[in-house]
Design a binder for these strands. Structure first.
Lengths: 341, 341
DNA sequence: GTGAAAGCGCTAACAC
DNA sequence: GTGTTAGCGCTTTCAC
């Protein structure tokens, strides 16, 4: 008769299970958490029962009690440019790798996309929610100062972005300035002398890429690099690129695009204008996304090691979670020469 | 002297705040939750104090008590093909839109990528974690049956994928079979008579696309469409496509690729083989990702409306959360003719 | 090796 | 309109 009851019971919590197993809730908790001191037989019985009833401990309750959630927040601040940074391939790919790394370390990932101008409080709000043990910020956008402010009072935060001398938040990112130098050197080696930078230089990472390119232009005694600002969403960017080309193409013979996405768009517009690449115009991108291999001609670009970036972010975050004070991690960019230079 | 203390105090919870405000925890809770019956002055005082101390209520505790978390789980099952479906552009773009929609509805998003063959229990585990109010599954992968099993006992679940007559789980997706028909019709209209399907037909969505194309081939009295299976990761796919072309290119004059990503890769390989598109070979893709506009020549493809898909998923999920029993949503595909047919 | 009991921070009856 | 109280489901001393 006991069996009759047993099979019909729904197990909502650890106490129900304990009743079924004829032990106390504490023991069930210990058994299910894989804690040391539980009799093997007792443990097996409890595990069997749990499996049979498809029971798993409530993470919210566990989190509340233990004061840790097992969840890492990942937040993508969308700058001025807000919408449609959405599909920025680079960030999305980084996100995919982050998901893998965090999963492997036993953490869940809580994703938040925020528009800082609508919500000045975005970072504190996320951190203060009590839902996450730590936070990874993907991209500094135009929020450098806000992130700096938070860094003083909150340890478990790591940011993907650009490293600036003396900054207080822990950052992982490619050496953008060096990357910019590599790109410019290559463009010049391929014969370009009048360079342009394609992309919005208010974003720190892009500004550093531009600055690196300018370093080289200056050193070589070339005229200053002109900037061709664009938005990041493909639709607007295409249009803006077309306008830039119409106005400036005759003044330049080399373009350094802030990202491969922009470079690919630019290539399409150049083709539309009848400007030969690399004959009339050299072109270099940044990121080395899959698309860089598929453009016609294939794109010369500066590779960022996305997988290493994700590993770095997670590794540093875990160490900060453990109380360590970590330094920032700056990854080396790598020039990949293909056929547009 | 009271002020001296006040400014130094750290506010860890609602009780601390209550003490500072000279009210009870209950009142603070009501005030911060924007509940109806709180004196305006009391509320303002509490809000001011909360702001001053950067306090926000702990969501885990609130969630535990209210038996809802304000979090929606989004899970991406990685089929056989496991790794590197990572960066599948379509899923990533869909995820971006989902993040937007959920945020707009006041929900947070918990992201999980799972490898079903390593963890048969992936879906139950996620649902049973107590961390999420509902779940969106992105892609059925090869897990159709498992999802069906769960659907019977768990309401708040919506799946992106293919709709099959009589299925029990609520799905949102494009009419893949119709999309396949559109692609095949176009390839044939452009002069192709011997078609191939490029991609892995064990995935349901792809199988339906293939079936749609085959519908048309049969109706037109053409020979059966041959299948050219590939993996999804760009590296392996490129290689496989090259092999397929070496072996079969002479037998076919039209290729329907399961996705734009595959189509773009295929275009690159066709170029490498010296096969002219659309002269010697017609080509059509599926998805209408940004890359479809940037290939050379630009790709004829079948558009899926990703934003509408995301809206549909969230809308249906919210209604299910409210207890409604919703039907599946099948979205119409749209043929986009460019220059590869 | 196991049970009993206190509480993590919050909310929602129920009083008044 | 506000205070009081009893938990949400779990973990973890502290006993034994």
């Amino acid at each position: 008769m006991d069996e009759d009851k047993t099979t019909r019971v729904t197990v909502r919590n650890i106490t129900d299970l304990a009743r079924l197993a004829g032990v106390s809730p504490g023991t069930v908790s210990r058994a299910l958490a894989g804690k040391s001191l539980v009799n093997t037989k007792t443990r097996e019985k409890i595990e069997a029962l749990a499996r049979e009833h498809g029971f798993r401990p409530n993470q919210m309750a566990s989190g509340l009690r233990r004061q840790k959630t097992g969840v890492i927040g990942v937040v993508i601040p969308l700058g001025h440019d807000s919408r449609q940074q959405i599909s920025d391939s680079f960030f999305m790919t980084l996100l995919g790798h982050l998901a893998d790394e965090l999963t492997r370390e036993g953490y869940d990932l809580m994703l938040r996309r925020v528009v800082p101008e609508d919500d000045a409080d975005w970072l504190d709000r996320f951190i203060g929610s009590g839902m996450i043990d730590g936070v990874i910020v993907i991209g500094q956008s135009d929020q450098f100062d806000r992130i700096e402010d938070v860094a003083d009072g909150y340890g478990p935060m790591v940011v993907w972005g650009n490293h600036t001398e003396g900054q207080r938040h822990c950052v992982v990112g490619t050496d953008n300035r060096l990357g910019g130098r590599l790109a410019a050197e290559r463009l010049i080696a391929a014969g370009a002398t009048r360079l342009a930078f394609l992309g919005d230089t208010t974003a720190m990472e892009f500004a550093a890429r531009f600055a690196g390119a300018q370093d080289i232009a200056s050193r070589m005694g070339l005229p200053p690099i002109i900037t061709l600002p664009t938005h990041l969403s493909p639709d607007r960017a295409s249009e803006e690129i077309a306008q830039h080309l119409a106005a400036r193409a005759s003044q330049i013979d080399g373009i350094f695009a802030a990202t491969d996405t922009l470079a690919a768009l630019c290539l399409t517009e150049l083709r539309a204008c009848g400007i030969a690449v690399p004959g009339d115009m050299k072109l270099a991108g940044f990121d080395d996304l899959p698309i860089a291999r598929q453009t016609v001609p294939p794109l010369t670009t500066v590779r960022q090691d996305i997988a290493a970036g994700a590993r770095g972010l997670v590794d540093l975050l875990l160490r900060r979670l453990a109380g360590e004070k970590t330094e920032s991690l700056v990854l080396p960019p790598q020039l990949v020469v293909r056929a547009t230079t």
